[in-house]
């Protein structure tokens, strides 16, 4: 009897170990790259606008904080941006730490940033660098700890003349985006 119980116990342990290992392999190895086109928004608030006709933008379309004349006056007034934004709902498949990248185009040194707001977390400034008039991926300074489920992402106007083409939410620390990426519509929540 004792030997039988030991055998059963060992078998159960072995099965648990195998299942655990399998689960660890299956779940730990999942890397997610969620790519959304900014023109595929859930809501948009002026002055943010969708523009088309740029062959260097993915799908030829992007969203923009339109250039103002005179340019860059909002910063001098102490208020950054005009409240305009583009808003998305994104389904995150698995809890984890996610980095957000935005494929952006800057007009000049006074048109080179956006606010990024995820859920109700504090806004981060994306951009501020000096590479102008070309599309380039810019990383949000801090990663986000996200639960599995639906999250909101808002790209909010900060400096006029700034454009956004796509954004990427990734838990894969190896992913360094370079060119325009293929959209992953499965993670876009449309309702």
């Amino acid at each position: 009897m004792t030997n039988g119980r030991v055998r059963i116990g060992a078998t159960v342990l072995l099965i648990c170990a195998l299942v655990g290992t399998l689960a660890a392999v299956v779940f730990a190895a999942q890397r997610y790259n969620i790519v959304i086109e900014t023109e595929h928004y859930n809501a948009i608030k002026p002055s943010t606008a969708v523009k088309a006709g740029d062959t260097t933008a993915s799908n030829g379309k992007y969203t923009e904080y339109p250039l103002k004349r005179p340019h860059a006056t909002s910063e001098n007034s102490g208020v950054q941006g005009d409240g305009g934004s583009v808003y998305f709902k994104v389904r995150v498949p698995e809890q984890g730490n996610y980095t957000v990248w935005v494929r952006t185009w800057w007009y000049d040194a006074c048109g080179n940033s956006f606010f990024l707001v995820v859920d109700d977390k504090p806004a981060q400034v994306v951009g501020g660098d000096g590479t102008f008039k070309t599309w380039k991926w810019r990383k949000a300074p801090q990663p986000y700890a996200l639960t599995a489920g639906v999250h909101s992402v808002k790209i909010q106007n900060r400096e006029d003349g700034a454009r956004a083409d796509q954004f990427l939410i990734t838990n894969d620390t190896r992913t360094i985006p370079t060119r325009a990426m293929a959209e992953t519509p499965d993670y876009r929540v449309t309702e």
Partner: peptide, 9 residues
Amino acid sequence: RSADAFVRD
């Protein structure tokens, strides 16, 4: 292609 003139906060 990367540039910076440090005009920022």
